[in-house]
């Protein structure tokens, strides 16, 4: 048993301003002194994580030393741009828009992805239909590793889901990852052209559970919110003055053509719940203590803890740098 009592409030920041100050001080130290860059580039999507990251970067380097880069492509949601512009305006940073659809066409991103979808659902017409992939929630309640399903939403509104065989799953993921990797390339272009660092936007769950693309959104020089739970990211957003529309927006993957929340795609539970469970697991609370604090079933918590363990282990590869000590 841990000394501290597990409650639903356990991950709330005791002093949000103090957390901001210490992240900002470290960010400044890391970028200016350690990396010897003179500012930061942040890819902004109108989402909460990139908005908080941009706001922190502005505090660390000053608005004139921060560049916001919008990186839409043809599957991006329409309101992302308006929100990203509102954010840049609020914090007074320069912003550039780089549409990466052409680069993605060149890589064959859409074509390779759609070929794989069509092998599983031959009726899929990428011109008119939308698609997404996800894990059914039932997998959370078992000790089985999850398998992904593809869902096509046809033009008439009907849907069809099929379990993805390995080759098709891998091809869809590999093709879609061109998006994050193209964004990373463009961010480094701007960073190098300005002698800035790339300020990454993944939060703690994304880093620890491997919900990022290696050398894609996982490719950055620093990740200032990489140790913050989503609940805490929202706390910082309010304190930093991130526009309310961004705070109110449901986090999406913005990766596939059909709309999809992050919860649906990867986490399988609301982030408030995920935060508490991960905190409990990471800090050595027993399933019994967490179950009591969250008014949940102990067996369910044990299963989720096992899933966390597995997720951490299977995604170690993503967090590893190249191995060069031969």
């Amino acid at each position: 048993m841990s000394e501290q009592k597990f409650t639903k409030e356990i991950i709330r920041l005791s002093d949000t301003q103090n957390t901001i100050d210490s992240i900002v001080a470290k960010l400044k130290e890391d970028v200016i002194k350690v990396l010897r860059r003179r500012g930061g580039v942040v890819g902004i999507s109108g989402g909460i994580d990139s908005s908080v990251t941009l706001a922190l970067a502005v505090k660390a380097f000053g608005a004139k030393n921060v560049l916001g880069v919008m990186l839409p492509e043809k599957d991006s949601s329409d309101d992302s741009k308006a929100l990203a512009l509102k954010l840049a305006d609020k914090f007074g940073v320069r912003v550039v828009e780089e549409n990466i659809s052409g680069a993605l066409e060149g890589f064959g991103c859409y074509q390779r992805r759609d070929e794989a979808v069509k092998r599983v659902i031959p009726e899929y017409n990428p011109q008119t239909d939308k698609m997404k992939i996800g894990i059914p929630v039932e997998f959370l309640n078992s000790n089985m590793p999850p398998v992904f399903y593809v869902t096509v939403i046809f033009a008439d509104g009907t849907e069809k889901s099929e379990r993805l065989p390995m080759n098709e799953y891998l091809q869809i993921v590999a093709a879609s990852n061109f998006k994050q990797r193209s964004r990373m390339s463009m961010l480094y272009y701007h960073a190098e052209a300005l002698h800035y660092a790339v300020i990454g936007t993944p939060n703690k769950h994304e880093v620890q559970q491997g919900f990022f693309v290696k050398y894609g959104d996982g490719g950055a020089d620093v990740m200032p919110i990489g140790n913050l739970f989503k609940t805490q990211v929202y706390e910082l957003a309010r304190e930093l003055g991130v526009p309310q529309e961004i705070i109110d927006r449901t986090p999406t993957t913005d990766t596939y053509t059909a709309e999809q929340t992050q919860e649906e795609f990867f986490y399988q539970m609301p982030f408030e719940t995920m935060d508490l469970l991960w905190y409990g697991w990471e800090n050595g609370f027993s399933p019994e203590e967490v179950a009591m604090g969250m008014e949940k079933d102990e067996q369910e918590i044990s299963r989720i803890f096992k899933n966390f363990e597995r997720k951490k282990k299977t995604t170690d590869y993503l967090r590893m740098p190249p191995i060069h000590n031969y």
């Binding site: 000790n143 590793p145 992904f148 065989p165 390995m166 096992k306 597995r310």
Partner: peptide, 17 residues
């Protein structure tokens, strides 16, 4: 196989195939 980390999602999908 799963509990001992021998098999993950990719292993399971390969086995199904």
């Amino acid at each position: 196989l799963f509990e001992e980390g021998i098999f993950d999602s990719m292993g399971l999908l390969s086995l199904i195939t």
